Simulated scan of single mutants.
Amino acid sequence: IRVQCFDDCLYLLDGRFNQLHTFCVDLVNLHHPQEIKNHGDLPNLKCFVLSCKETCGYDELILPLLYRMSNLEQLGLYMTISIDTRYNDGFIDGNHLKRNIINRMLRLNDFKFHICSCMFIHNQSHFSSTKDIQRTFIDFPVNNIISYVDYFPEAERSQCQIYSYPSLTPFYENITNSFPGGFFKYVRVVSLFDEHPFEHEFFLQIQRSFPFMEELSVFNCKSQNKKQSYESDNDNQNLPLIEYSLLNELAINTVHDDYIEQFLLNTKTYLQNNVFLYIEYESLQRVTHNFTREDTRINCMKINKLKLRGERICRNSSLQAYFPCAKICYPGQFFFE
């Protein structure tokens, strides 16, 4: 089931469904509960799966909830965690999972997870490396674990991805150039972020790893390194075309112009019909040569909803003609069916 807040989750686990043995929940927002207490044993619960994109109360809310499930046999955790330095001085790693979950749940025999832990960088003297994190999984009871660490000095933050593979997660966030690849048939929502450029080959790898992706967000302000060499060699036509067969929502509103070209040029990308595009107006105007460019026109004709950032009212009559199938939404407006 999908619930809006942690209160809703606790309400369903307050004892009224005392015979409940399986509970799978997708949590939209993890806010501190306002009314319902997070206590009381849940001895009949055998299987619990929780997914939550943004988690600020992992130590205060999620762990105490798990400790109520004394007879749990199957557990799935899929979440992005903002590390609270009051409880942890490092990333969520294998040692943390053994100490705080596995060793406290004696009946647990099936544990699947995908956890991205994020921290701000504040004058630390030691930074965990990918090898440091991998060593914490040497004697882990789950065999195939993927882990890697990224540091973003400009944003002054860092992140660590750890997950059991093959993965059952419905989303994969903050993918960087460190992404090791793989096949993720359950993922529908993907976001990409890095302070190093994403090249065409990277997007090809993303498409192959997430063939059922429906929503994609890209955050990268660095220009592509290989773009100039492709253009000087007149090699654009030889690039493999990337086809997003199920993509219906694309957010490229915080990117360098190179990534707008990456998705709108019909020599690089094939979009299906009826795509919702979220983009910055001035960048779109530049890349499409004031809505006259021919090699971006085909993909723009496939957009059925266009949400513009930065331009409250567009007085350019060419915009609607360039997006003939699109409902156009400006800042402060909303789409109505």
Rank of each mutant, 00 (worst) to 15 (best):
I1C: 07
R2C: 14
D14E: 10
H21R: 10
V25F: 09
E35I: 10
N44K: 15
D59N: 10
L63V: 12
Y67R: 13
Q74G: 02
G76D: 02
N95Y: 02
L97Q: 00
N100T: 02
I102V: 04
N109R: 01
D110R: 04
K112S: 12
F120A: 08
S125I: 11
S125F: 04
H126N: 13
S129F: 10
D139P: 01
V142K: 00
S147V: 00
Y148W: 12
S158F: 00
F179A: 07
F183H: 12
R188H: 12
L192H: 06
F198C: 03
L204W: 02
L204T: 08
Q205S: 14
S217V: 11
V218P: 03
N220P: 03
K222S: 12
Q224G: 05
E231L: 15
N234L: 08
L264R: 03
Y270W: 11
F276H: 15
L277F: 07
Y278E: 09
S283N: 15
Q285T: 06
F291W: 02
D295Q: 11
T296A: 14
M301Q: 13
M301K: 12
M301G: 06
K302F: 06
I303A: 12
K307G: 02
S318K: 15
Q320K: 11
C325F: 11
Y330E: 06
E337H: 09
